[in-house]
Amino acid sequence: MPTTYRPLAPSDLDSIATIHREACLIAYAFMGWNYSWRECRDWYAGKLPEWDWGIVAVADGEAAGYAAGMNTHLDQLFVHPRHHRQGIGSSLIRATLDRTPPVETLHVFAENAVARRLYERFGFREAGPVPDGGGVHPELVYRHSQS
């Protein structure tokens, strides 16, 4: 069954909380990330109203990944680990770049080498530190080279 894409809806809250939690347990192992599903869901309940766009990847009849943001900023992009290495993350990035207006910026942890390589493959480049994002695990601003 091919992967399909659709707009993110408020009814996706439980699914994106699950995807976020499972993906972050792997992606953020460098920081000992271990929030509960309930904590993720509560955090996303506050995030959903901030976003003005979102895309959900559906594979095998379930939400497999998502991207969401505000205007030209990509705020979140995660793929459930059981769907890694299937091109879903790349497809989501392509979809954000094909939007009108296209995504121009995102934030990524400096230590998240896997995500940084993915973003760089699509023309994003480090533009400096995130203001006030220099804690124990500093974040970087990435800007798309066509912006």
Rank of each mutant, 00 (worst) to 15 (best):
G123C: 10
P49H: 10
E139H: 01
D60G: 15
W51S: 09
A45K: 13
W43M: 14
L25K: 10
Y142E: 00
V130H: 03
L118A: 10
F122H: 14
R121G: 07
R116I: 11
S90C: 04
E104N: 05
N34K: 14
A64M: 06
G135R: 03
G133L: 01
I16Y: 03
L13C: 00
T105C: 04
R116F: 06
Y44M: 08
T72N: 13
K47Y: 12
L118N: 09
P49D: 10
L97D: 05
H20D: 07
T18M: 01
T96I: 11
L25I: 07
D75T: 07
T72Y: 12
A17K: 00
P81W: 03
V56S: 08
S91R: 13
R116C: 06
P131K: 11
G135S: 02
G32R: 10
H107K: 12
V130L: 13
F122V: 07
D98A: 15
V136F: 00
S11G: 06
V58R: 09
C24P: 00
E62I: 14
E50H: 08
F30Y: 15
L118W: 08
A45G: 10
V103Q: 02
W37K: 09
P102Q: 08
A29T: 12
R116E: 09
F30P: 07
A67I: 07
M70P: 00
H20M: 00
E139A: 04
L106D: 02
E104K: 12
E62N: 04
T72G: 06
A64W: 04
R99G: 09
T18I: 00
E120C: 10
V136S: 02
L97F: 05
F30H: 14
A67W: 03
D75W: 03
F122M: 06
E50W: 06
I93T: 13
P138C: 01
R121Y: 08
T18F: 00
D52L: 11
G133R: 02
A95K: 15
V56I: 15
L74G: 04
R125E: 13
Y28N: 13
W53L: 10
L92K: 11
D52M: 06
R116L: 13
H80F: 06
A68N: 06
A17P: 00
E111M: 14
A110M: 12
C24T: 05
H107E: 15
